[in-house]
Write a protein that binds this DNA or RNA. Structure first.
Lengths: 329, 329
DNA sequence: ATCTCGGTTGCAACCGGTTGCAATTTTCTG
DNA sequence: CAGAAAATTGCAACCGGTTGCAACCGAGAT
């Protein structure tokens, strides 16, 4: 159907090499043949096939963008920014949704068979085993939102979760609260563990402060609401302020508090995490820890590009600083 | 680097064809050679390259998933469902973010050069010209959320926007309101035009009902809030009930009303559109027109698959029925 | 007029697979 | 057990490009 290099060559009256070279920047072609080739190509609507050329060049300019989080609104921002960054670097994102009922196909193998040049894992909830299996694929891989390690197996970029936890604890303490709590996401998520650690460290450093901890079953509105309902119904009195491990958790918790007739922040204070777009909506106006998403994502793509041409660079981990955004909760 | 078919053939002591055939379902290979091949393949970690084979099979099992909407939370649900549906059909989504500052590369040409088997356009705000240029690409294309036409140029699947508008109008009338209004998205969006038409038709059919119309500049919280603020500040009195062309618009409008000291639904009623996940959050609890997203997306992918093997099927347009979800606004 | 030299060009092999065809082996029939 | 049909196998050509190499070209140097 579609015109091939050969067709163009015939029409232009030149060799196939000549055509190939006109479409390869930096190749040696005279202006004259280039012009002839271009004319023929236009006439036929010719487009070089990326995959045919990838066979010899060994580059598809495809990047596997892997995630298991398609529920949390922050991830729409994540996908938006990743796809833009990838595209403007001249690459294309092959999106892989791991939250799939298709566990029979190994995502790593799948990406290998598509010859992606690189892989970006965008998730803080993925099992480390899976991440390692990506790393072992021989394909340059970057793990965004992964856990920091001084000797990482994979390049990792993330916000400094511990510091963010500390920030949140401090914010609650600054309000004069003496009973504060951490309401995390799934206990298995490394991001939750680290935020909790930072939170606890600050809280325990000041005497006379009681802290408690609980976990929602997922990073979701429903889970946050449920957990807060449980806390409300429990024997223990509520804390004066909660640091929720995610903005949607916060909104869920606030919904439960509201239903119980409790006012935020008068009765209970809430600090969220992420600063998703919705957090700034005036009728939500969530106080939250801002994660420098754009910076993290930009750096992730940049790092992956480095990995793509440089070879055998040792994996490194980078941490970015969050900051508190005070709003009304 | 990675093992190729030839390597496997050598190790297994068979011809390259034999290896190829073991990895092609339905090809004729004896159990014995299949076993030998599999062993060798496992030993070498061999994976057939999709692109090498696509050269002869002319199938990449890649589907271009094109959108320009990476801001509206409903689209996270859209991407989630599309990627799952595409994946479970054995295809892979190549995501194209049109909201890109990279207008130099024609997305159609780009998808051609990646030899995608098919294209899904997921947008109700794309210019018809662009949609047509996709259709002319010779690549099977489906336009989800596009405008219905009795003689479509591209396969189109969407909710029946007119009917949804009618539903919303009826819901407001049923409350006894006599001054109702349509607060649409961008006036240029076909989805808004159709919802408005259906809304107006119902409203005008009953005498003594005043209707008015205005448009937000985008399908976004900020735009909805701004437009509602404008309406509040205008000379005209507010309507008793508003049908907003999108849930995020509704939430924005509600935020403006709340700031003005107006209660929803006591002072002003709101009906949204889409029934995004957030609409059911208890502290939002938006009355809205539910769009059968899963059904539409499932049908879109199914239709594209039909287009992929069947040839020269005439484009058709399909409409799906929305339904009103009464909640608290 | 001859020699050099840098730029341009085509040939042919190769990238990693698939597939029609003919040869070979296996299985089935009578 | 012979003969025929069916299943399996390898050869070689091809898919749409790229690229090393050698041949070629024209212009400037000698």
């Amino acid at each position: 159907m579609t015109a091939t290099l050969k067709d163009v060559a015939v029409l232009a009256g030149v060799s196939r090499s000549a055509v190939s070279r006109t479409f390869t920047t930096g190749a040696s072609v005279s202006d004259q043949t280039r012009r002839k080739v271009m004319e023929a190509a236009d006439a036929l609507g010719y487009r070089p096939s990326v995959f045919a050329s990838s066979l010899t060049t060994r580059r598809t300019r495809l990047i596997g963008l892997v995630s298991d989080n398609f529920r949390n609104p922050i991830f729409l921002e994540v996908f938006d920014q990743f796809t833009r960054a990838i595209q403007s670097a001249g690459y294309r994102p092959l999106l892989v949704n791991l939250g799939d009922a298709e566990p029979n196909t190994d995502p790593v193998e799948m990406l290998r068979s598509y010859s992606v040049d690189g892989i970006i894992i965008a998730s803080s909830t993925l099992s480390p085993d899976l991440v390692v299996s990506f790393a072992k694929s021989q394909i340059p891989t970057v793990h965004t939102f992964g856990r920091y390690s001084s000797a990482p197996k994979v390049d990792t970029l993330a916000v400094n979760n511990e510091h963010c936890g500390a920030l949140a604890a401090q914010a609650l303490l600054d309000r004069g609260y003496t009973r504060i709590a951490f309401l995390g996401g799934p206990a298995a998520a490394t991001s939750t563990q680290d935020r909790q650690a930072g939170f606890a460290a600050v809280a325990q450093a000041v005497s006379g402060v009681e802290t408690s901890v609980s976990h929602a079953s997922a990073y979701s509105f429903a889970a946050g609401r449920e957990e807060m309902q449980r806390l409300i119904g429990a024997d223990q009195p509520l804390a004066q302020g909660y640091f929720c491990g995610d903005d949607v958790l916060s909104v869920g918790a606030m919904s439960a508090l509201q239903d119980a007739g409790l006012k935020v922040p008068n009765d209970v204070g809430i600090v969220g995490f992420n600063d998703m777009a919705m957090a700034s909506w005036q009728n939500i106006s969530l106080t939250t820890v801002h994660q420098p998403l754009e910076e993290i994502i930009g750096a992730s793509v940049e790092r992956l590009l480095e990995l793509l041409d440089g070879q055998d660079i040792a994996p490194q981990a980078r941490l970015f600083e969050g900051r508190l955004v005070e709003r009304s909760t």
